[in-house]
Design a protein around this nucleic acid. Structure first.
Ligand SMILES: NC(=O)c1ccc[n+]([C@@H]2O[C@H](COP(=O)([O-])OP(=O)(O)OC[C@H]3O[C@@H](n4cnc5c(N)ncnc54)[C@H](O)[C@@H]3O)[C@@H](O)[C@H]2O)c1
Ligand SMILES: NC(=O)c1ccc[n+]([C@@H]2O[C@H](COP(=O)([O-])OP(=O)(O)OC[C@H]3O[C@@H](n4cnc5c(N)ncnc54)[C@H](O)[C@@H]3O)[C@@H](O)[C@H]2O)c1
Lengths: 220, 220
DNA sequence: TTGCCGTTGTGATTAAGCTAACAAGGCCGC
DNA sequence: GCGGCCTTGTTAGCTTAATCACAACGGCAA
């Protein structure tokens, strides 16, 4: 009962497990072993067992894990039992794609407000989400109790937008711009740097090429 | 001269350094210290010095690093001195956004071919990039010598698309679907799981909340 | 009830990465 | 040309994470 801290690496895998467990349930599978899970999510089976064990003894020896039980458990852990509203700042190329998608499929998250400076789209509704002018951001975030924002604005306005978000007491930012943001330490930033991902992939291929086969892992 | 292997973690940071160095050069700064870089890219200065040192002694003690020299160096390392063509499979929400953006800004990568099954867009040109039917994928990839593909198709077709890419001898895949792909070990997969990123961010905020301040880092 | 089989949960080990700290060494003012 | 100062390059220790390997234990069949 030490209520010990879940390792960061484990936390990042939880949504992956959760998602696949739901797929299993949809296929009426109520039982799964760490080995089987391992194959599907490409995570070593020992790592999976260790991850699960941080939450206590969830499985049965000689049997495996009970899928519905795991789902119920992770649903709470991941706050998927309640809807989380997030904001989107910058409705351009990428912003539009995210708005349209809106994380509907078995994820209990949705974009409930968007913000932009472009007068052509401000005060319209896109994919069911209202787009407000920047000037209303603070008010809306507070009124709607939104604690998380997605930033898809041009790079050079990213920091100023961030500063505004900080004023509105946002707690987390998913940052799609290549800028590394300065934030007070009450805010957690998750960077998604697509150009970087692609360049890194190219680097690995050009430089680690032939050595890839054999014992080395190829994912992530 | 041991030509030693660059650690994976270092490799992932190289594009970040490269990008910021170019910003410095644009601002006519020809000299930079690890401390200054550290502030901008949010990486510990000791880590930066260590990263650079894998490539030899690039800096001068008591002075710092010469920006143009570093840029020239990293440009070669990152293969940014030549254009890399990549393919895009699945021109939907996300695919469109990527096509429009197309990594133009100071990155020497571009999408030169796209593929889809939707007859309404096949054989058209979007943002200057031709969209081919899936049936031509093998031929086009080979003809254009494309070794890298971005997958933005619906989840349930991801694996079959991957199998086709494998047949066309692709070397790397940037996978935006939540499926974990099975690939031969000649192919490197980089997963970009946006729903996962968002859920993980939510998890961290809800569970590591108050402990975030102080010594803990908040990025990535 | 008993005993075998399969799978978990976990100690031990190995690997990878981060960061504090500082000596070495070059820059720059005088 | 010299000395203080600044910043690198790197050693060492620490932290986190992955993986191996197996004893413990519940299911299940007879
Ligand atoms: N689109 C991609 O595929 C892609 C790939 C990699 C990185 N990125 C990054 O993602 C970010 C967005 O890219 P994009 O292609 O969607 O850009 P975009 O130019 O299409 O969209 C930016 C949107 O932000 C709005 N905006 C500008 N200033 C604003 C402000 N101060 N407050 C609120 N909104 C503001 C603009 O009106 C526009 O609608 C950029 O930083 C880009 O570097 C995009
Ligand atoms: N859009 C987002 O914001 C977002 C967020 C998170 C994850 N994703 C993931 O990214 C992927 C794409 O999302 P999207 O919103 O762009 O989907 P989308 O449905 O808008 O686009 C999918 C495109 O793929 C094409 N397609 C279907 N089957 C194909 C096949 N076999 N070969 C080639 N093309 C095919 C379709 O015609 C369509 O144009 C999905 O797997 C989704 O889960 C998207």
């Amino acid at each position: 009962m030490a209520e010990q801290r879940i390792p960061r690496a484990t936390a990042k895998r939880l949504p992956i497990y959760y998602r696949y467990l739901n797929i299993l349930l949809d296929a009426d599978k109520t039982r799964v072993s760490s080995t089987e899970l391992s194959e599907a999510v490409k995570v070593d089976s020992a790592t999976i067992r260790r991850d699960f064990s941080y939450f206590g003894a969830l499985g049965k020896r000689g049997y495996g894990y009970d899928v519905p039980k795991l789902i119920e458990f992770f649903k709470k852990i991941l706050n998927q039992d309640q809807l989380t509203n997030v904001a989107l700042v910058g409705v351009g190329n990428l912003g539009h794609a995210l708005l349209n998608f809106n994380f509907h499929q078995n994820s209990n998250v949705r974009i409930s407000a968007a913000f932009d400076v472009n007068d052509n789209i401000v005060n319209t509704v896109q994919s069911g989400v209202p787009i407000y002018p920047l000037s209303e951001m603070g008010k809306q975030l507070r009124d709607q109790q939104i604690a998380i924002a997605i930033i898809t604005v041009p790079e050079n306005t990213a920091q100023e937008v961030t500063d505004e978000l900080a004023k509105a007491d946002v707690r987390g930012i998913l940052n799609f711009t290549p800028r590394r943001l300065s934030v007070p330490d009450t805010i957690r930033v998750q960077n998604v740097d697509l150009t970087n991902e692609l360049q890194t992939l190219i680097y690995f291929i050009d430089n680690y090429g032939e050595l890839l086969g054999g014992n080395e892992k190829s994912q992530d």
